[in-house]
Design a protein around this nucleic acid. Sequence first.
DNA 1: GGGCGCGCTAAGCGAGCGCTCACCCTTGCC
DNA 2: GGCAAGGGTGAGCGCTCGCTTAGCGCGCCC
Lengths: 214, 214
Amino acid sequence: MSTAEESAGAEAQPWGEVTPDAARRLLLAAVEAFAERGYHATTTRDIAGRAGMSPAALYIHYKTKEELLHRISRIGHQKAVEILRTAARAEGSPGERLAEAVSSFVRWHAGGRTTARVVQYELDSLGPDARAEILGLRRQVDAEVRGIIEEGVRSGEFDVIDVQGTTLAVLSLCIDVARWFNVDGPRTPEEVGALYADLVLRMVGARGAGPAQR
Amino acid sequence: MSTAEESAGAEAQPWGEVTPDAARRLLLAAVEAFAERGYHATTTRDIAGRAGMSPAALYIHYKTKEELLHRISRIGHQKAVEILRTAARAEGSPGERLAEAVSSFVRWHAGGRTTARVVQYELDSLGPDARAEILGLRRQVDAEVRGIIEEGVRSGEFDVIDVQGTTLAVLSLCIDVARWFNVDGPRTPEEVGALYADLVLRMVGARGAGPAQR
DNA sequence: GGGCGCGCTAAGCGAGCGCTCACCCTTGCC
DNA sequence: GGCAAGGGTGAGCGCTCGCTTAGCGCGCCC
């Protein structure tokens, strides 16, 4: 599996596990291109060009253009699950863990916006088999967040009627960051993460949430 | 055909203003196709086929494939502005108007998911001029929601630190409904609208929000 | 009732697509 | 030095794309 050099917040080398160096450069170029123009509008010539290689070089490392997207999507989703799982299994109250889950998840979507865009918005471009595999990872993402919220409800710290609907809304809020976040905009990923953590605590009716209590 | 799906959202005649009948049929076919596969993955032959016409017929009513997207995007954004403006200018407290704005906006995204998908996610497929025009409409959307929140803050009914950031989050939450909503899923557009209105009132710290008080 | 214009189609153009293939370099092992 | 192996390239295949053009049928006005 992955090396244990993981620390919260900092993605050291996101694509370090892609082993032949040329394959990693191609994958990185594909992430950029897919995020910028979308999967279908990206040509294999464009990907190879960004990686400084000829169009044919792509097919030495990947069978098809779709395999590139599949690999990107799988690695990205695994990273998402890992981020949420780390926050969910940390110590602290459900409110603290939910805040940490949301803020780190948002930081990932804002800071690695190119990757997150591909991961979250190009799912439909995958074939049926690949999509089915990725949907399994998405269910894990949902389960981690739902778990924290359920715990908070059980302990009385949260006040939520529709747990599944609220889980969906929380994830939806985080994921949509990848659509609108602008690196040149006025907010840093950290600021958005903090704002969103506060908003989510309010959504679940966490005792002590909001600025009025300070 | 699929015109029946529009009835749930109570949109009377969504594309009534598109005047030559064949042009409207082509536009409707394009909305379906763009929503299903994305703009770049949709062929002009597919659009014409869905409308029951030959590929060349498209170019009698539209100069290019992009003009179709532009028209759809403009009409859709105008509808979005209209929905929010109606709610913003209604009578009632800021909380009541914000709840109505969110629930009707969400109902539109869920009930007319095909249209909303194209409107919200295919903006980047437009050329620079068309995109600039649409971005103007988006600023109006933002201004309507921000206006309600500012009013609630001024009157003391809401408790919000970052008005612009919260506005962004509220709109983001509504818009992302178009990504995940499933017509065959367990929730109706009305249910999602009601849930989201409640969540948003909690986000702005509205006095009296949340189920505990009900 | 003949000419005209409108809405539409069949056929096809040039371009660019995903992908393949024959061949060329380097590298490392004997 | 001989040579196999594998990463890389230039050229190009078959195909489909967005879009164009020549022409057809038919309602309408004089």
